[in-house]
């Protein structure tokens, strides 16, 4: 319990730090929004009036506090480009990105764990498998995405590239479309997870307790399942949490390839438009997602391996 509280406190502290940095950085560069909105012809009085209206005349800590509160009240300011509240703009996109990320995560877990376990301890064709593994790691998600759209979209016509079907009207079509995008994100990460799992299990299989168990007459598969798996699990859980971060990165690019209207695509558009209130909000949301995955991994590991709870985890 104390461990959980400590992890939660660390999560909170990290998020405060991240949001503070994001706020200050974008506050410094975005300059004076009032001047930007009124142009150079504006008089001093109208500028001052607009600043007061936008709340820009108040000190930085106050504005930071209000912005932070906005994540809970839904008031994150107004997009300079779309002239629409940021929250209204982002709310429908959060779900899309979330679905894409989760789908990709499930795909990675479901494919790579059995493959990694199968591959561990087998030496036949190892050279070939190493080569194949390295090759898969080398394919960037956006290239996989383009290849998938070409093969399955243009040649086989399983979906129309660039058109995410409406989820209400065609749920199966929308799911299939997202599945291809998720696969593009997953491919290099599956290769990495297999490689990592294989290494961990092989290291573990060389240990004394495994030799003892086998010398007592247990078969390899049984030892793997009953003894090795639990010891090998902790690094894998940590690795999968890092995978969540990579998925976020991958979704930024793959949303562009498949024209999926999610947070990543919005982020890219907003950076090009220098629409800082939107960029600020998306960065904090994505960062929260990444930090949350890390905390979840720590908590899961603490359940698997009680020794970890005793360490000074900050």
């Amino acid at each position: 319990m104390r461990y959980i509280l400590r992890r939660m406190a660390a999560l909170l502290a990290t998020m405060l730090l991240v949001s503070l940095l994001a706020f200050i950085a974008f506050d410094l560069i975005s300059g004076d929004a009032a001047t930007a909105m009124l142009g150079t012809e504006a008089t001093e009085e109208s500028l001052a009036a607009l600043r007061a209206e936008l709340g820009l005349d108040r000190p930085l800590p106050v504005r930071y506090g209000e912005w932070l509160a906005g994540f809970f009240t839904g008031d994150l300011g107004t997009s300079q480009n779309y002239h629409q509240p940021v929250w209204e703009l982002l709310a429908p996109k959060v779900g899309v990105t979330l679905r894409l990320s989760l789908l990709s995560f499930l795909l990675i877990t479901a494919v790579s764990i059995p493959m990694g376990l199968w591959s561990a301890g087998r030496t036949r064709g190892e050279g070939l498998r190493t080569g194949l593994n390295q090759l898969c790691m080398a394919v960037p998600p956006f290239f996989t995405g383009i290849l998938l759209s070409w093969v399955f979209g243009i040649i086989l016509k399983w979906f129309t590239p660039g058109q995410l079907p409406d989820r209400a009207a065609d749920p199966a079509g929308a799911f299939r479309y997202l599945l291809f995008a998720a696969a593009a994100i997953a491919l290099p990460r599956v290769a990495m997870t297999v490689r990592m799992l294989r290494g961990v299990v092989n290291d573990e299989m060389r240990k004394d307790y495994v030799r003892t168990a086998i010398s007592r007459g247990n078969d390899r598969a049984g030892v793997l399942r009953r003894h090795v798996l639990k010891n090998a699990l902790a690094p894998v859980v940590t690795f999968l949490a890092q995978t969540m971060a990579e998925i976020v990165a991958g979704s930024i690019v793959v949303e562009q390839v498949f024209a999926i209207p999610g947070l990543g695509r919005m982020l890219v558009t907003s950076i090009s438009n220098r629409d800082y209130p939107v960029v600020q909000a998306i960065v904090v949301i994505l960062a929260f997602w990444v930090v949350l995955a890390g905390t979840a991994a720590d908590l899961i590991n603490a359940r698997i391996d009680p020794r970890l709870r005793l360490e000074d985890g900050a």
């Binding site: 991240v18 971060a245 976020v248 990165a249 930024i252 690019v253 950076i271 960065v283 960062a287």
Partner: peptide
């Protein structure tokens, strides 16, 4: 430790937008 937890492309996008 905090910085390496984030995907590099996300950080790079933040820096380049600045």
């Amino acid at each position: 430790d905090v910085l390496t937890a984030f995907p590099s492309i996300l950080l790079a996008l933040v820096v380049i937008s600045i």
